[in-house]
């Protein structure tokens, strides 16, 4: 702890505070503007951009909901929940195998899985379009579920594996003494012990899936089945002259993630710390 009460220190800390607060304004003001615009009329929007809405027009939100945002929200929730569950289970299962069990070529498998971290999804885009069409999965829920799971496995394995490596081996030995099978030891002992890192990966996965755009745009056909990011651009195209409704839709898409992050920030930061620290 530095205790310097020189004039320089005071000026310095004033400057730091001013800078941090100014930056906070730069971050918050656009978001506030977005929220307020969701309450305006078109005429107000085209008038003075700094003005507050004359009244809170909740009907813009209702309109956005009825014009598809409700639907997109449901699809996003469905895809996010299922792919997060699938990713975390497959990832944890593999991480357990890689850390606790003697597997032939385990090093090769490890490299195969972790090397996936380095691949850009765009590179696989064109072949994937063909593949999913051939499999009859194009424009289905399964396409997004499979893609989100496959491309998220490397990072998930990476995080969970790092955590599992630090769990003492004695736990497994104790389980083995009790006669628990490997699978039971995984489900009943190791998995619960990994709860903190699981929560972190779940939050990271939700953030990713909820916001993903490339696959969602290419692999859905634009009918009722669309996730929020793609649905929002559609809302913009279809109701281009009704901007306040578009803003309302944007707020509805952003809000769940902001709330989730603020509520789960402790786990989130911990997940990041574990990711870096290893």
């Amino acid at each position: 702890m530095v205790k310097r009460s020189t004039a320089l220190g005071v000026i310095g800390s004033t400057f730091v505070w001013a800078f941090l607060l100014a930056l906070a304004v730069v971050v918050i003001y656009p978001l506030l503007w977005m929220t307020l615009n969701g309450f305006k009329t078109n005429a107000e929007l085209f008038g003075n951009p700094f003005a507050l809405p004359v009244e809170l027009r909740w009907e813009n939100y209702a309109n956005a909901w009825n014009r598809g945002v409700g639907n997109y929200l449901m699809v996003s929730v469905l895809v996010t929940v299922t792919s997060t569950i699938a990713t975390v289970f497959i990832g944890a299962w593999a991480a357990y195998g890689l850390t606790r069990i003697k597997i032939p070529f385990s090093r090769t498998f490890l490299i195969v899985i972790l090397a996936g971290l380095m691949l850009a999804p765009t590179v696989a885009l064109i072949p994937l379009v063909r593949m999913f069409q051939a499999l009859g999965l194009y424009n289905t829920f399964w396409a997004l579920l499979i893609l989100y799971t496959a491309f998220r496995i490397p990072f998930t394995v990476f995080l969970i594996r790092a955590y599992m490596m630090d769990l003492p081996v004695q736990i497994d030995e104790a389980a083995a003494v009790d006669g628990a099978s490997r699978a039971r030891a995984f489900w009943q002992i190791i998995l619960p012990m990994c709860k903190p890192i699981i929560v972190s990966t779940v939050i990271l996965n939700i953030l990713f899936t909820w916001n993903e755009y490339l696959f969602a745009m290419v692999f859905t056909s634009g009918g009722d089945f669309q996730t929020l990011p793609v649905g929002l651009t559609n809302l913009m195209a279809k109701h281009g002259t009704d901007y306040p409704v578009v803003f309302a839709g944007m707020v509805m898409a952003a809000l769940p993630m902001v709330v989730l992050f603020i509520a789960g920030q402790r786990y989130f930061i911990r997940g990041l710390a574990d990711g870096i620290g290893k």
């Binding site: 890689l98 606790r100 593949m131 893609l147």
Partner: peptide
């Protein structure tokens, strides 16, 4: 610690590896 048949142990990594092989590496 593991006395399980080593090949059966592959069950642990196969789901992840197969997903990656088919949907990431093959494309």
């Amino acid at each position: 610690t593991s006395r399980i048949s080593s090949l059966r142990a592959l069950v642990w990594v196969l789901p992840a590896v197969l997903m990656l092989a088919v949907f990431v590496y093959l494309p």
